[in-house]
């Protein structure tokens, strides 16, 4: 009898553990009443050994540069980060990303506001790898004024800053054009997007099929140069690519972290086994 009470209590505790850990299961807001089902993408960077798909990150940068950068900044990125280890344009030949020709070219493609040290005048000059990605608007008020009162958020950590992570951003970009529920009032300048909390977003659909044209990408695969043909720039393709880029931008050290993690886990595993046998050896003659 007492035993069964204990068993019930134990079972209850076990249930409670499960229930409270389910809190950590991601639950993100897909506009409360909508039917929209989040699509789970098999990202190249998922899983303990996953890495970024270099070609996708490179294409994603192109999408960002040609489309999103009209409104969104990358506050925590510098151009040199593109050429860092783990970054989309990393090249073993240029350990210092400031020397990387791709990085230099991308930086020079942007205009940076600066002060002329001789005259003190505000000048504009081409970017260098050491520069941060510039802000797009002079200030938040200007950003709002150009976007119907809404502020386009910084995108450099956006994948980390939304509950669903990369899936959230991908779905947000592809879930336009559905029929809004009847009880949702969309005032001027708002679009229906079931992924957005509340269902209404102030960003016009940023992507449309073949809005840009992808170029083939050359990647250095262990010494041999491989050419990856350019895919057709469908909405899904661009959304995937830009999300891959933004995922890298939110967690640029992921590959380094995972590879050190792998070594650490193996090391700790071996150490645990050794310590277990040491423990058995030390306690061999001691009953306890």
């Amino acid at each position: 009898m007492k035993l069964t009470i204990n068993k019930i209590a134990l079972a209850l505790s076990a249930f409670a553990v499960l229930a409270s850990t389910s809190v950590f299961g991601v639950s993100y807001a897909a506009g409360a009443k909508s039917e929209y089902k989040m699509e789970h993408v098999h990202w190249h960077f998922n899983g303990p050994r996953g890495s970024y798909d270099r070609a996708a990150v490179q294409r994603g940068y192109q999408v960002y540069r040609e489309i999103c950068s009209a409104c969104h900044a990358l506050d925590y990125l510098s151009f040199r980060h593109l050429g860092d280890k783990g970054g989309p344009y990393y090249d073993k030949a240029y350990k210092n990303p400031n020397d990387n020709p791709y990085v230099k070219a991308f930086a020079a493609d942007w205009t940076i506001k600066d002060i002329d040290s001789e005259t003190g005048d505000v000048i504009e000059r081409p970017g260098t790898p050491a520069d941060k990605f510039p802000s797009i608007f002079d200030n938040d008020a200007a950003a709002r004024a150009s976007n119907g009162g809404a502020l386009p958020p910084d995108l450099s950590v956006i994948v980390a800053a939304r509950g669903g992570g990369a899936d959230y951003v991908y779905n947000l970009l592809t879930a336009y054009g559905l029929d809004a529920p009847k009880d949702l009032k969309l005032t001027g300048g708002l679009y229906y997007n079931p992924v957005m909390e509340g269902g209404a977003i102030a960003m016009a659909p940023p992507l449309a099929d073949e809005l840009i044209e992808y170029a083939p990408i050359e990647v250095n695969d262990h010494g041999t140069i491989k050419t990856i043909p350019a895919p057709v720039a469908t909405v899904e393709q661009m959304a995937k690519d830009v999300t891959e880029f933004l995922a890298w931008s939110a967690d640029p050290k992921m590959e380094q972290r995972k590879s050190l993690g792998f070594a650490t886990m193996i090391y700790l595993l071996i150490l645990s086994v050794l310590l277990y046998f040491s423990y058995k050896a030390v306690w061999r003659d001691v009953e306890h």
Partner: peptide, 12 residues
């Protein structure tokens, strides 16, 4: 054990 159970429930 019921106490532990309720501690987890409180967390939930």
């Amino acid at each position: 054990f019921v106490f532990i159970f309720f501690c987890f429930i409180l967390g939930w």
